[in-house]
Amino acid sequence: MAQKTLIKLIVGSETIFFLALLMAFVYFSYVPTLNPRLVSRLDLTSTGLFTVLLLSSSFTFWRAEVSFRRGQTKQLRLWLIGTVVLGIVFLFGQGLEYRTLFREQLTISQGTFTTSFFTLTGFHGLHVLIGLIILSIVIYLAFLGDLDDPDSVLLPSVGIYWHFVDAVWAVVFMVVYVLPHVLADSTL
């Protein structure tokens, strides 16, 4: 109970942290005018694909929670591993994207757009990484057989964090990748 409350509070606090980064990004990319040259360098399709993978990791985690409640140890382990794999693939995708951008000389010091882009996505990636580390520990515990008390709040607490990380990405993806295209296409 207490753990879950704490995680909720921390997640609330983190939300504001990401809002600050997001506002900085919005400020530099949308004010006074959108910079389509740089946004067009972002690969909407491949990032979209990785986004789908990350968001589906929320689904796999939810399945893991269900298995946990039902005491199905085997499924629990499988779903957890699935979640971690999806998370790793997402990070891998982010790495690929960064590499492409670096090759085009779009580094963090190239301009305000890249500075705020790398900061925002980088901090999100960092959160994914932290989530993966926590999930690995959870998997380790699951294999040790320590996750057998259905009243334990460990998994639900980790879940709050993991769903939060996914939700943040959904917003980041909309604002960084999708919205510019929508705005550029509209007559505005």
Binding site: L19, M23, V26, Y27, Y30, V31, P32, T33
Partner: peptide
């Protein structure tokens, strides 16, 4: 407030 800010500082 966020929306208000966006509208206030939007171009």
């Amino acid at each position: 407030s966020l929306l208000g800010m966006l509208i206030t500082f939007a171009p």
